[in-house]
Amino acid sequence: MQAKQWEVRLSGTGGQGLVTAGIILAEGAGIYDGKEVVQTQVYGPQSRGGASRSEVIISDEPVMYPEVTESDVLLAMSQEAADAYIHEQRAEGIVLVDSTFVKVVPETRAKVYAIPLTKIAREVARTEIVASIVALGALATLTGIVSQDGLEQAVLARAPKGTEEANRAALHAGFAAGHEVREQ
């Protein structure tokens, strides 16, 4: 895809780390890759459970409208999120669902990839908390919106002390999983 501007929506439930994932993606693309970025999120009670979303616009040029209207890239880490946001997804873009939770992918003309992100997180890092990092790794491979190197630096810069290895493992598992589904 040649879009100069990528509108990325990361969605799921509160507690899945999607706001932090949005910040990491924006830092990877914006600070380490040197792109223009805007990151926004829905604040409020949603951050304590229920629907949660974080959005990142990545562009080669300064970003005009700062909010995502239709996404080029949608990450859905819950069934509710997939149901809610797939209709605001561009046909030319891609959708990544966490098949651990998303059992029925609503109809869309966009290319859909299903990866058991949370299951992978449990396996490689023994914690679900890094499932969003697995997701970022997979998105990096699938879309190229952020370089693997830039993303890794951003992940490690944000990882709380003592969790660097778990995060790195999750990220690399994500890179690999993205590669795998793309080859299928």
Binding site: A26, G30, I31, V38, V63, P66
Partner: peptide, 9 residues
């Protein structure tokens, strides 16, 4: 609240 709660470089 839009600009205050937005992240940019």
């Amino acid at each position: 609240g839009v600009v205050g709660h937005m992240r940019e470089k």
